[in-house]
């Protein structure tokens, strides 16, 4: 159970190293730059260490929400769209109150962000429970819709009126009441990371101590038994998609009001998709997701560093992350089945 993610990471390093060799980069050097230098290199670590939490925060927050749904067999793969809509709604709520300096602005934005993501996730939930529409396709299609809304509002409705016509909203970094600042200097710890940690604990409590968590797991493992036990499938669908949307939306708001700073057509960095890998790599378990999120954040930072130092293409890291999921699923065979050599049974 714990072993297969470790095997998967190890295999990814080996095959990734071969890939780097094919690209004409020194493989060991590249692996070291990705996994070691961001944390321990004298020159870069002071910059990249805080980035670890900045990147891990949204990944963990989204992945926690997704994992709850995945446990119930509800495949919300449109977290990216919920993330974008959360950012738009949260930023929009904040910008509507510009230039107020009230301390309530940021909480209100966070709330609006979460609700935006929640509302976006309710679309597949309603369609699934009401019409039986496949949530995989609907949630994914909505990601593309969200993307085009994002492009539209960042160059229209929410564009910075003092931005000299450039697309993009006001910069939250210049507006203290709405800025999601670092809570402790040079740690990368912002409210999104705090929320992620709370989500980890909350999800752990939910899944292991609360009846709803039990019902979710039951629905995933034995849907028929769940129905006989009186679990309402529709409620599970609403709950799982709602939580995932809420967390993804909040993550989007924390990102746009903090590290990203402003709403632009491309502020979203595909976290919603990477979070799927994080959820699986963490074995759909909150603590596992915490670790997997940190690891995945490390590959992001390491990837940027490798781009800088070794001129490694940015896409190589994306491939690297995808491979990790593949190897994880392959390594899972050892947890699901026992290897037996030499004995040929009757199939």
């Amino acid at each position: 159970m714990v072993l297969s993610p470790v095997i998967a990471v190890f295999l990814t390093m080996i095959v990734g190293g071969m890939m780097f060799a094919i690209l004409g980069k020194p493989p060991l050097e590249a692996i070291k730059v990705i996994f070691w230098d961001p944390l321990f290199n004298d020159q870069f670590a002071s910059y990249s260490r805080p980035q670890l939490l900045v990147k891990a925060g949204p990944l963990i927050l989204i992945a926690i929400g997704l994992s709850i749904g995945f446990k119930a067999g509800i495949w919300n793969i449109g977290a990216e769209g919920q993330y974008i809509m959360g950012a738009i709604c949260g930023a929009g709520a904040g910008l509507a109150l510009y230039p107020s300096e009230s301390f309530l602005i940021f909480p209100a934005m966070a709330l609006a962000g979460g609700l935006g993501g929640w509302a976006w996730a309710m679309v597949p939930a309603v369609l699934k429970t009401r019409f039986g529409t496949n949530e995989i396709l609907v949630s994914l299609m909505l990601t593309y819709v969200a993307q085009s809304i994002l492009i539209s509002v960042s160059s229209g409705l929410l564009r910075n009126p003092e931005g000299m016509g450039f697309p993009g909203s006001r910069n939250f970094k210049q507006w203290d009441a709405a800025f999601n600042a670092e809570l402790i200097a040079n740690t990368g710890l912002h409210w999104g990371v705090v929320a992620a940690l709370i989500a980890v604990i909350g999800a752990y409590m939910l899944m292991s101590r609360h009846i709803m968590g039990f019902n979710i797991r039951l629905t995933g493992e034995a849907p028929r038994a769940a129905r006989f036990a009186g679990v309402k499938p529709a409620r599970v669908v609403f709950f799982c998609l709602g939580i995932a949307g809420l967390l993804a939306g909040a993550a989007g708001l924390f990102e746009v009001s903090g590290p990203a700073g402003q709403l632009t057509g491309s502020f979203n960095a595909g976290y919603g998709f990477t979070a799927i890998i994080v959820a699986f790599l963490g074995r759909l378990h909150p603590v596992g997701i915490l670790l997997a999120g940190l690891l995945m954040a490390l590959t992001y930072i390491g990837g940027e560093l490798a781009q800088l130092m070794l001129n490694l293409p940015g896409a190589a890291i994306q491939l690297f992350q995808g491979m990790m999921l593949f190897f994880l699923l392959a390594a899972d065979v050892f947890t699901n089945f026992r290897l037996r050599f030499g004995k040929k049974g009757v199939a």
């Binding site: 994306q318 995808g322 699923l329």
Partner: peptide, 30 residues
Amino acid sequence: LLTQYLMSNQVATGLGLMMVGLGLSSLIGK
């Protein structure tokens, strides 16, 4: 191979395939 011989989850493996394909393509396409 993953879904048929290692009996992995088809949804998850398909998503993995999508991500590998996207990464691979932008790497080749540069």
